[in-house]
Design a binder for these strands. Structure first.
Lengths: 231, 231
DNA sequence: AGATAGCGGAGAGCACCACTATCCGTAGTG
DNA sequence: CACTACGGATAGTGGTGCTCTCCGCTATCT
């Protein structure tokens, strides 16, 4: 397969593919002549992953490069590889609010209370501390009172994620599913949270019946979970 | 208070404040002379909100403008105002994957199965469909099997959020707490999910004890939830 | 054999975004 | 009365994510 076909296959413009190769996101094709190269299914797969991380996950090109480096790393202990991938994924927002040290203590306390095996200085902990400090700055300091509800929910989600991800025998495949599950899973999770908000808000502030009852408007499709067939 | 003090108070550079005023994010100060204006606490508050949404929430300036427009809207029914704020917040990623129609059906089916009072075409539903289609494209179509676990968790979270937000009597205050809770809450939620992943992964792939036991390294702070004092 | 389309590689260019710098004339301040 | 800070406006900056252009070459069609 040549670059044009790769582009058609994935819906990515050819100059963009070249750009990704230059940027080290996508391996170059195998040269068959000094100026002809061939690409295979692994390129298609990798390119789709790149686009997914960028478009849906909202990652920057630089972040994608880091994530892919972690995915491709020779990989010692599974936990380490996953940790590296995780770190590459987790962004820590800028801004240094007033109450950061206090927020860090709140996070450390939460981790302790939960008995979580996580280091205090983990990027995610720092990101969370920044977010909590922002709540504080905005006069919403009481938000910490719902943290345990959030933590409960996150434990459930993490268990579900682990079970899902645990199916993969091959380590490389596992790492990729973790990356995808984490990054795209965030998108799904926030969208679901919005939908749940809409529902709860409708029930509370309308009168249980005013919102259009939903669905059923298009076709009588009876799709169950897991129904979509892979391409 | 003049612009310099406003800047010092919030940690935002004066030219940046001017920029926000030009962009319509922040109302101009009250002119006391043709070329002197005074700012008050509402400006401080609004500016902090803007920075929170941009830095922690990752919103663009344009998105912040929309959100604030919704917050400031004269507001009829509470549910409508919240809906407007919600829509302004929810981004729909670009990219049109192959399986989008199928993914939309999956989402509609989920909403129906859950009995959620949400419209099928809601931005969040669309965002979720895009994310699910991306999973499909990446060969992770089986992810739909954990959707109900995610939905369970989101219902709990939404209930906690509603209870938290429901304290506010004043409508404007309520809307702002919804905006903050939604945008910054996303940041907290994804960070917590990461931490839960780290914990579960450590328990599974290490041996329950290898990870550093966490916390306790800094001081013997005994902070309980809700402890941070507002500034 | 010749025409035509596509290719690999590399550099320059472009559009957008979120600021940031500069300038002007004026206002408040020690 | 010097001096800093201000409001308002315009122009410029740095980073990001592509996109364009050019080159000589190759594969394919007729």
């Amino acid at each position: 397969m040549r670059i044009g076909e790769l582009g058609r296959e994935t819906g990515v413009a050819v100059p963009t593919i070249k750009f990704y190769v230059r940027e080290g996101l996508l391996p170059a094709g195998r040269l068959t002549s000094p100026n002809q190269a061939s690409y295979d299914e692994s390129h298609v797969r990798r390119l789709r992953l790149i686009r997914g991380l960028i478009d849906v996950g909202g990652l920057s090109v630089a972040a994608v490069r880091e994530v892919l480096a972690a995915v491709d790393a020779p990989g010692g202990a599974v936990h380490k590889v996953l940790g590296a991938a995780h770190d590459a994924i987790t962004p820590v927002p800028p801004g240094r609010p007033e109450g950061l040290p206090q927020a860090r203590r709140t996070v450390a306390e939460l981790i302790r209370r939960r008995g979580w095996l996580a280091e205090e200085g983990h990027p995610a902990a720092e990101a969370m501390a920044v977010a909590l400090a922002a709540f504080q700055d905005l006069g919403q300091g009481a938000f910490v009172e719902v943290l345990d509800d959030y933590a409960d929910a996150c434990e459930q989600i993490a268990d579900a994620d682990l079970a899902y991800v645990g199916r993969h025998a091959d380590v490389e495949e596992l790492v990729e599913s973790v990356v995808v599950g984490t990054v795209l899973g965030d998108a799904v999770l926030t969208a679901l949270r919005r939908l749940a908000h809409v529902d709860r808000s409708a029930r509370r502030y309308e009168g249980y019946g005013e919102g259009r009852p939903v669905a059923g408007g298009g076709a009588d499709e009876g799709m169950e979970k897991g129904g979509a067939d892979p391409s």
